[in-house]
Amino acid sequence: MKTWVYIDHFKGQAMPASWEALGAGKNLGTVTAVIFGQNVEALAKEAFENGADEVLLADDVTLADYRAEAFSSSLSKLAAAASPDAIFLPTTTRGREIAAMAAIDLKTGVMVDVTAIEVQGDSIVVTRPIYAGKLLSKETCSTRPQIVTLRGRAFPKPATQAGRTSTLTKVSPAMSEADIKSKVEGYTTAEAGVSLIDASVIVSGGRGVSNNPALTPPGGLDEKQTEIWRAQQGFALVKELASVLGAAVGASRAAVDAGYVTYSHQVGQTGKVVSPDLYIANGISGAIQHLAGMRTSKVIVAVNKDTDAPIFKVARYGVVGDLFQILPALTAAFKQRLGK
C-alpha cells in the first residue's frame, strides 16, 4: 500500500503524533512524508530518520503560517496527481481540518481520530471511539485515497535511524497569496508547560482543590475571590507534583468553570481526550463526562475524600483522604525516589 503522511508541525516543530502516523503508514508499505511550511527543510531530515521513503516538501512564503485553504488545497492537488492509496494525518487541530477539506476536493471520506488500523483486502478498516469513548466503531471508506487521522499516543513512535536519508522532492503550493481568502494576523502564546495531549503523565485537580477549611484567605476578598484563592492553594500542590513527575496539569470542568484554571486544561467530553500512561485525579468525583476524557489512561490514581466517588471505579489505586495532606506527602515521596 502506498501511504502519504502529513507531517503536522508548528513553526518547524513537529507534533509527535506525526511520527507515530509515519510509523503506522510504514507498517502498510511505502510511506511518503508531506511537509508544508517555510524554512522547514530540517523536518525532511527528521522524516527520513523516522522512516520516510520519500519526502514531498513545499517550502514557500505562502505556507509560513498554517491556513486551512492553502494547506489542504496543496495536499489535495498533489494527491490527485499521484493517487496514494491512503493519506494519514495526526489528529491535531490542523490535521483534522486539512483532512476534512482535502476529502471534499478528492471526493473521498475521512476516518477521524482512529486508535487502530487493520488492512482487509486492499482496504483499510479502522477502529475509532465514538460517543466520547462509550462505544467503538469500525469504519472503512469505499473511495480512494482513504484519509485517516490517527489519535496521538495510540500508535507507537517508530525507531529512528540517525543519518538515514532518501529522495527529497520539492513541490509548489497550490494557491498563490492572492487566492487565499484568510490572513493570519498573529499569535497569542499559550501558557508554558507540558501539553495535555502529548503528555505521558497527567496530574489533575477538580473542585476538591478549593476545599481546605484550614486555610485562612487574606482579607478583603469577596466570596468568589476567596474560592479562587482557595483553589489556587490546591492547584499549587497539583502543579508541584506535576513538575516533579514532568507531567501536564489537567482539570475537571467544575474546576475550569469556577475559574481555577483555564479551559485549555479541561479533560473530558467537552475538554481534551487524553490517554496518558499515568493519570492522577485529585478532588475529582469522576462524572461520566470527565471519565470520557481519561478512562483509557493506562494507570489511574485517585485521591478523594469520599469513598463512594465514582472515580474509584476506574482507578487502579485510590487514596480515601484529604488531598491537602496526601499531595504534599506524595510529592515529597517522589522527589526522594526520583532523586529530584
Binding site: F10, D65, T93, K181, S182, V184, E185, G186, Y187, I197
Partner: peptide
C-alpha cells in the same frame, strides 16, 4: 482567535 495546541492563532477573512 482560534484555539490551537500552541495557544491562539488570530485569523481574519472577508
Amino acid at each position: 482567535d482560534r484555539a490551537i495546541e500552541e495557544g491562539r492563532q488570530v485569523v481574519s477573512a472577508k
